[in-house]
Write a protein that binds this DNA or RNA. Sequence first.
DNA 1: GGCTGAATTTGACCAATGTCAAAACCGGCT
DNA 2: AGCCGGTTTTGACATTGGTCAAATTCAGCC
Lengths: 189, 189
Amino acid sequence: MNFVDHIKTFFPLTDEAAVELLGKSRWHNFPRHHLLHREGEVCNRLWFIETGIVRWFYHDEDGRDITDSFASENSFVTAFDSFFQRKPSRYFIEVLEDSTVYSMDYSDLDESLYKFPEIERVSRLILLDILEQQLEKNSALQFRTAEQRYRFVIEKHPDLLQRVSLGNIASYLGITQETLSRIRSKRPK
Amino acid sequence: MNFVDHIKTFFPLTDEAAVELLGKSRWHNFPRHHLLHREGEVCNRLWFIETGIVRWFYHDEDGRDITDSFASENSFVTAFDSFFQRKPSRYFIEVLEDSTVYSMDYSDLDESLYKFPEIERVSRLILLDILEQQLEKNSALQFRTAEQRYRFVIEKHPDLLQRVSLGNIASYLGITQETLSRIRSKRPK
DNA sequence: GGCTGAATTTGACCAATGTCAAAACCGGCT
DNA sequence: AGCCGGTTTTGACATTGGTCAAATTCAGCC
């Protein structure tokens, strides 16, 4: 599904706006391990994942690679700490499977936001959705044991277990790979 | 400072939009401990804190009171999991000091969003700001020791230490009050 | 200026989880 | 089939931070 069709599933986009957006976007095919974005750079692209999965990660003070979150089919992806505010990002964005994505440049999107108030509105809705996921993740980690965190993944993001390495999932949950492994061996499956 | 003046510090609001927003807002004075919003209800108000400080909290499965975050002067406050999506919230919002706030009803804001694209744009900017705070908090907690978490507060939100009980801060950081107390006694101040 | 309840600190103990190192497993490639 | 690198598991051990209970401090109030 392309991103305009996806938007239409939750917002009645006019044809003019749809044409505007499609005209300014491009389609890409990226291999596993490709980096969509690097730490320290201002992110100039907004992506939409048609097929595949990506992760945001950053390097903490001790140089550890820490996964912040994942996104897959029908998600908008960018460095949210960078793209809109035009400042360097702390995040990397990595493609974890061979993926097909649409992209749009910041300047093109910015233009469209001015031309079409409805696009502004769609952006707000998308941001809200992302904010809510962050809130949910926050409460899944805060004050939770390793096992409770793991159950969060099983319940809310079971597909991750099939598609992403356990090392990445452990880091996403803020626990070590070893701890995750031990939890999994206790309650099989 | 009222919220229109605050918006003008980062966005050139037209006079028409300013009049629209002010006309639809009300001013309140709330005492310490007052609840702006309760879990389970659909949140119908957006607030703006002129003076004072509030906290979001929720009850987890074990009934513990867990602080998600704080907001003080010049912040927009609402149940972000509820207000825009019109569904019941998991959060309470509590006033922690006698506070003065502006409020606006959902239906009024919604109307204004349709009438003034620039208000839509301002909303997006505000949401971005909130999203970024959440991202920052996430990485301050994920994989961090209790002491590193405490330093996050000292560095990024030092005013909290003066204004909020240590119990609330500990819960915000995902550690127990006892642990926080021990950390503070080690490195005095 | 002591009384009361809330907030904070302290102590003893212990369970959960991290660390480091070594093994086992797995998938792709030759 | 056998090898290689990367991933996952397992083991032994150290440490952090949680729990529960009691002591202390503090603030507001009569």
